[in-house]
Write a protein that binds this DNA or RNA. Structure first.
Length: 118
DNA sequence: TCCTTGACTCAGA
DNA sequence: CTCTGAGCCAAGG
């Protein structure tokens, strides 16, 4: 897959993430499932790896993307290796998202319901 | 070209 | 519900 296609995909991810309202969170897999696979990617490959691509997109996201609202399917914050603990949790708490004592979010309560097919 | 790693997920205990 | 382990395909060294 060429770099250009990947950038386009990243841009789509960011666009989707920007639609997550304040006080809500979404999972990597959820974001991925809302987007169409990049060109030249088989459905199987997409299913298997899209969550990590979303992660990759987050790693390179612009400042106007609320990356902190994207967490893993367990409701926990995932950080890139070596990346020190950021204040992602504080950012979310400031938006009204509640973390339990194990730094976990109750997805059944804060999970973003999707683009609402506006 | 080969080998390791990955902001993940799902199934099984 | 929580903890472990295996697997997914591509990118990067």
């Amino acid at each position: 897959m060429n770099p250009a296609s990947r950038m386009v995909y990243y841009a789509e991810v960011w666009e989707m993430v920007r639609q997550i309202p304040v006080g809500r969170v979404a999972t990597y897999g959820q974001i991925a499932s809302l987007l169409y696979p990049p060109e030249g990617i088989t459905p199987q490959a997409y299913k298997a790896f899209s969550p990590r691509w979303v992660g990759g997109a987050m790693a390179a996201c612009p400042d106007d993307v609320p990356w902190q609202r994207v967490i893993n399917s367990q409701g926990k914050i995932s950080l890139r290796r070596g990346e020190g603990q950021t204040n992602q949790r504080e950012l979310l708490e400031a938006e009204g998202v509640i973390f339990d004592e194990r730094e976990r979010v109750d997805l059944s309560r804060f999970r973003w319901s999707g683009p609402e097919n506006k």
